[in-house]
C-alpha cells in the first residue's frame, strides 16, 4: 500500500506529533518503504488462525482486593512540568 503525504499528516494528528515539513517528507518515504516490506504478510494463509496477542496466553489473573497505600500526591506530582500542588496544570482545553 503506497503511503501518501496526506496519510502521514492524518496519522501525525492521531499520534499527536507536530511534524516539520522535512519530517513529513522523510516519513512519507520511510513509512512507504517499511509498509511495502510488511505487505508481504498478505501472502501468508491465515484463514482459521487465531490472532496471538501475547506470547504466554494468561487469562484472568486476579489480585486480592485489599487496600494498599498508593503513590502520595506529592510524589505523583513531583515530575510534572507544571502543577499547583493539587493537580496537573495544562494550557486551555477549550478554544475561544
Amino acid at each position: 500500500m503506497a503511503i501518501t503525504r496526506d496519510d502521514v499528516e492524518k496519522v501525525a494528528l492521531l499520534a499527536r506529533l507536530e511534524l516539520s515539513e522535512a519530517e513529513i517528507e522523510s516519513l512519507t518515504t520511510d513509512l512507504g518503504q517499511i509498509v511495502g516490506y510488511v505487505d508481504q504478510l498478505a501472502e501468508v494463509d491465515t484463514d482459521h488462525v487465531e490472532p496471538m496477542a501475547h506470547a504466554i496466553e494468561l487469562h484472568n489473573v486476579f489480585a486480592d482486593d485489599v487496600v494498599r497505600p498508593s503513590l502520595p500526591r506529592e510524589q505523583a506530582l513531583a515530575n510534572a512540568p507544571s502543577h499547583n500542588g493539587k493537580g496537573y496544570l495544562v494550557p486551555p482545553v477549550l478554544g475561544d
Binding site: V11, A12, R16, L17, E18, L19, E23, L27
Partner: peptide, 22 residues
Amino acid sequence: YRRTRDEAFGPEVKRRIMLGAY
C-alpha cells in the same frame, strides 16, 4: 501535546510511533 512530542522524541521513536499509529 504535539509540539512536546515532536521536540522530545528522536527520529526513530517518531518513525515507530507513526508506523504503529498507521
